[in-house]
Each structure stands twice: as structure tokens, then as C-alpha cells.
């Protein structure tokens, strides 16, 4: 129960930070994905099951705020959560050397799945190399900082 409340709170916090970027700096909204940090954190700490379920929920929340097809982010975040959970059961992920590339690749994977789905469905999206590089990079930097702070508090 405590864990479910934790996930719910985490989702609300990720959502609020993500949407607050609108007030702070709009282009940043495009370059940082707090939902991915949220999914990766719960996947790395709870395994595949927790990862895919938090991925589904956060993806659908993200989808409900876009004028796009509902379910695209849900799909990509579910996959992200599952694979991150799977990786966490194989290797130690708390060290920065592992954590940073893991978040980078995870966010990149999420963007590519999103683009691929849009392409397959026929939704016109601008393929941006800037987003493809900077969103994983900035999210990975921020993700590492946030996750390290959480780990420190948990100790």
C-alpha cells in the first residue's frame, strides 16, 4: 500500500514538474522528460512489473495532455519500464557510470518508439536530431541528480 501511494505521489510530482516547465521555460519542456525519470526510477527499484505498470499509467497521463493519438506514450513508456526493470535485475544500477548511460539510452528508446509509432500510424511528426540528442542528455543529467538525492535520503 505504501509503495502504491509512493508511485501515485511520484507520478503527481513528475506531472507537476513537467507541466510547470511551461511557466519557467517552454523549450525546456521539449528537452526534459520527467515522466521517463519517474518510470526509470520505479523500474530500477521495483523490477519489470512495477516498471511496466508505472510506465503504462504515466504514459497515458502524458497522452491525455496531448492533441495526438491516445496510447502512443503509454506504449513506449510501458516498454521503457519493462526493459529498465529487466536490466535492473541483471546489473547493479546505482552507480553513476551505469545510471547515466542507462537513463540516456532509456529516454532515447522512448523517443524512437514514439517516432516509429507516429510514422506507422501516419501522424506527421518532425524528426528532430536536437530532441533525439538533447532530451536524453538533459534528462539523464537531471535523472542522475534526482536519483542520487533519493538514494542518499533513503540511506
Amino acid at each position: 500500500m505504501k509503495k502504491i501511494i509512493g508511485i501515485g505521489l511520484g507520478l503527481i510530482i513528475a506531472f507537476l514538474i513537467q507541466t510547470s516547465l511551461l511557466k519557467v521555460n517552454l523549450p525546456l519542456l521539449h528537452l526534459i522528460d520527467f515522466f521517463s525519470i519517474f518510470v526509470i526510477y520505479f523500474a530500477l527499484n521495483g523490477g519489470e512489473m512495477q516498471g511496466m505498470l508505472t510506465g503504462t499509467v504515466s504514459g497515458l497521463v502524458q497522452d491525455s495532455f496531448t492533441y495526438s493519438i491516445f496510447g502512443i506514450s503509454g506504449f513506449s513508456k510501458t516498454a521503457l519500464g519493462f526493459f529498465m526493470g529487466l536490466i535492473s535485475s541483471m546489473i547493479e544500477t546505482t552507480h553513476l557510470v551505469v545510471l547515466f548511460p542507462l537513463i540516456f539510452i532509456g529516454v532515447l528508446f522512448d523517443i524512437i518508439i514514439n517516432y516509429l509509432l507516429c510514422f506507422l500510424i501516419g501522424i506527421e511528426t518532425k524528426f528532430s536530431l536536437k530532441i533525439l540528442f538533447f532530451q536524453p542528455l538533459l534528462t539523464a543529467i537531471l535523472g542522475c541528480i534526482i536519483l542520487k538525492i533519493i538514494y542518499r535520503f533513503r540511506k
Binding site: 512489473m49 491516445f70 496510447g71 519493462f82 509509432l117
Partner: peptide
């Protein structure tokens, strides 16, 4: 939080992906 066998996890994962594809 959730304790399932590996096989069940994979099945649920595939199920969730199919659910999203159906919604889409």
C-alpha cells in the same frame, strides 16, 4: 511490490502492449 513469475511478467507486458495498440 509485485511478485510474479518471469513468464507471467512477459505475458502481462505483451498484454499491455497489445492493449495500447488496440486503443491506438
Amino acid at each position: 511490490l509485485f511478485t510474479f513469475s518471469k513468464r507471467k511478467k512477459v505475458l502481462l507486458f505483451i498484454g499491455l502492449l497489445i492493449l495500447h495498440l488496440v486503443i491506438i
